[in-house]
Computed example of a mutant assay.
Amino acid sequence: MYKQQVIKRIFLSCLLGLLYPFSLLAQQAVDVTAKADTNSIRIGEQIKLQLTATLTPAQFKDANFKVLFPVLPDSLDHFEVVTRTTLDTLVNQDQHVLHQTFTLTSFDSGHWEIPPMRFEVISGANSTADSAVTLPIGIDVNTVAVDTTKAFKPIKAVQAVPWNIWDYWLYIAIGITIALVGIGIWWYLRSKPKKEPVIKTPTVSPYEIACQELKILKEEKLWQQGDIKQYYTRLTDILRTYFEHQFSIAALEQTSEELLQNIKPVTILNQQRDKLRSLLSIADLAKFAKLQPTADEHEDCMRKTEEILEWTKPKANVVNNPGATATGEKQQA
C-alpha cells in the first residue's frame, strides 16, 4: 500500500513537471489580428485596417508584461497611410483588447497584399522578448470601368456655388467693427468741447502795429506796380487784425457782411460803419471779381483805413486794457 502511494506521487510529480512549461507558454500567448474592412476598392478609395491584441486579465495586470504594436511607415508596398489613431483599450468580458486603426489608400491597380504585422511581446522580470505575427491581407485595387463603345461626353460647364451669407461673416464683422469705430470717433469729436481761440495781446498796442504795417504797405507801392489783389488783401488784413486785437472780434474769420454786423455793439467802431462798408466792398470786388479800381479809389481806401484807425485808437490811459475802450465807448453812447 505504501509502495503504491509513493509510485502515484512520483507519477504526479513527473506529469506536473511536463505540463508546467506548456502552462507558462499558454499564459504568455497573445492573440493578435489584423483585419481590413474590405478586400476590394477602387483606385484612391480608403481602407480601414484594424490591429488588435487580446490579453487575459492576468497579462493585463502584470506590470512586466507588455505588447508593442508594429510601427507602420507612411508608405507600404502599393499602399499609403492616410491617418492613424492612438492605441486604445476595450474591455470585452474577461478580456482586454488593445486596438489601433490605420486608414490606407492605394493608387496602383492590381492585387496587392498588406504584409504581416509583427507584435513584440515582452514578459517576465527578465524582460524576455517574443513576437506574434498576423497573416497577410489580400486587397484588390480596381480601376474605373470605361465603356469605349459610347461617345465621349462634353465637359460640363462650371456650376456656381449658391451664395451663403455665412461664407462672408468675417468680412461683415470687420465692416461692422470699422463702422462702429468710425461712429465712436465722430461722436467723440462732436461732443468734445471746442477750445476757444486764445488772442494774444501784443506788447505794442494794436494801433501802433497797424500804423506801422500801413506805412510799409505804402512804401511797397503794390497797386502802382499792378498788384491790385495783393494790395487790397494786405490792406483789409491789417484792418481786420487791428479789430481782432483791439476789440476782441474774430474779424479774420468772418466775411465782410458778418464783420459789419458784429461791430454794432462797439459804438466807436460802429460810427465808422459806412466807411468800413465802402472799403470792404471795393476790396472784395478787387480780390474776387477782378475789379480794377482807379488810382483815386486806391488812395481813398488807404485814407479811409487811416481815418478808421485814428477814430478808434485807444486813449493813452487804456492802451494796456483794450476791453475798457469798448466799454467806455458804449457808456458814451
Rank of each mutant, 00 (worst) to 15 (best):
E258F: 04
F102E: 04
Q100I: 11
N142H: 02
G323I: 15
L19G: 00
F22R: 15
Y242H: 02
I209T: 05
F69S: 04
A36M: 03
I308G: 00
L24A: 04
C211G: 08
E257T: 01
E244D: 06
E253N: 02
A145R: 12
E299V: 05
K194R: 04
D167Y: 14
K221G: 02
I43K: 04
S109D: 08
I7H: 12
N270A: 03
L291E: 00
A36S: 05
L252C: 09
A151C: 10
Y232D: 01
P70R: 01
Y188W: 07
P116C: 09
N262P: 11
S205P: 00
N320V: 12
C301F: 02
Q28R: 14
Y232W: 11
E213H: 02
K150D: 08
F22C: 09
T149Q: 08
M302D: 09
S109P: 03
V30L: 06
A179D: 01
Y242R: 02
S13K: 07
K315P: 06
A289H: 05
G17L: 12
V144G: 02
V161K: 00
H111L: 15
I122V: 06
L222R: 07
A125P: 08
V133C: 10
K313Y: 02
N64G: 00
T83E: 02
Q46I: 13
L90W: 01
W163I: 05
L252P: 00
I139W: 13
D130Y: 14
V319E: 15
D300F: 04
Q5A: 05
N262I: 12
S131Q: 05
L280G: 05
Y2H: 06
V198I: 00
T105I: 07
A173N: 11
I174A: 01
I122Y: 00
I172Q: 13
Q271A: 07
V181L: 14
T267G: 15
P154L: 07
V30E: 11
K192D: 12
A26D: 10
D77A: 14
T101D: 15
A160L: 14
Q261Y: 09
P73C: 09
T312K: 02
L280I: 09
K304N: 09
E329I: 02
D88L: 00
K61H: 05
L18D: 03
A36H: 06
L259D: 01
A289M: 05
D130I: 13
L222Y: 06
V161W: 03
Q212G: 12
P115M: 05
